[in-house]
């Protein structure tokens, strides 16, 4: 291992290394995420149940992100309805289907996905920062020495809490966006709330798709964030790296699952 003289790479080798290294890095992260995923499922099904901790984490997720999500959902609702209303006025000249279609697209797409992206930002970074700081201050090692597995002790409660809370927060977010849209339609275009508030466009497939999306996001966020946190190393730089990694990976995971599930919905559910 030690006797080799240092080898100076030539241009071709450097090029190939530069070409391959992103794949190596991405592959390593995938492996880490799936390892944590496997362990989480295993411990979630067979490990100790710590419902008190789950409750605490659920409270923290809700408490941390409620105001944030209300702000985002509100401003998003206003903007979307305003833009859609202008287009509808210009092209169709009829604003009656606005409310129903808006609710439908909210349930199918913007409600769950934007909420999940916000939770990735708020909760995902929080989980990664917390677990990452525990790794670099040796608390995770101490946990293992105490006989607890870090995934079981740290990720599993957050996993259960997130599965439930992503759904709850999505409901809140849909409601707030819809109300904001309703007010916008009323104030900007004079659409009566009675016309706006209609369920006529919503089909059962929309609700099933919403449930599938929120569950998938709820599972993905704590696992991806936990994997980022657990792979932190070094001092405060390591924590920063883990947090950054977590936002990006969680958001990409959400978008990827969204493409997958929307495609599934298009092909199967919403015909």
């Amino acid at each position: 291992m030690s006797a080799h003289p240092p080898h100076k790479p030539n241009v071709l080798e450097l090029f190939l290394a530069a070409l391959g290294s992103p794949f190596v890095i991405v592959g390593e992260q995938f492996r880490e995420i799936f390892k944590v995923f496997g362990l989480t499922v295993q411990y979630a099904l067979h490990g100790r149940r710590r419902w008190k901790e789950v409750w605490l984490q659920a409270y923290r997720i809700g408490n941390e992100s409620l105001v944030f999500i209300v702000c985002v959902a509100g401003s998003l609702g206003v903007t979307l309805v305003y833009q859609a209303g202008l287009q509808a006025e210009r092209i169709i000249g009829d604003l009656t289907p606005l409310g129903g279609l808006y609710l439908q697209i909210l349930l199918r797409e913007f409600g769950p996905t934007i909420t999940a992206l916000m939770i990735s930002t708020r909760v995902g970074t929080g989980i990664a920062a917390e677990i990452g700081s525990m790794v670099v201050t040796e608390q995770v090692d101490a946990l293992q020495m105490s006989g607890a597995h870090p995934v079981e002790y740290l990720v599993v409660p957050r996993f259960w809490a997130s599965v439930v809370m992503v759904f709850c927060l999505t409901c809140v977010s849909v409601l707030v966006s819809w109300l904001a849209g309703l007010l916008t339609a009323l104030l900007a275009f004079g659409v009566s709330p009675y016309t706006f508030a209609t369920l006529s466009f919503v089909i059962p497939g929309d609700v099933i798709l919403l449930l599938m999306k929120t569950t998938a996001y709820g599972i993905a966020i704590p696992i991806v964030a936990g994997a980022s946190g657990l792979s932190a190393h070094g001092g405060s730089e390591g924590v920063g790296w883990a947090t950054t990694q977590s936002v990006v990976n969680c958001s990409l995971a959400v978008l990827f699952l969204d493409v997958l599930l929307s495609g599934f919905g298009y092909l199967v559910l919403l015909r």
Binding site: F68, T121, R122, T125, G126, A128, A129, E130, G132, S133, V136, T137, G235, S236, G238, V239, G240, A242, T243, T244, V247
Partner: peptide, 13 residues
């Protein structure tokens, strides 16, 4: 290190 993690969290939010 803990402060850095918290700041990143606050910043993205």
């Amino acid at each position: 290190a803990v402060g850095v993690g918290r700041a990143v969290n606050d910043s993205v939010v």
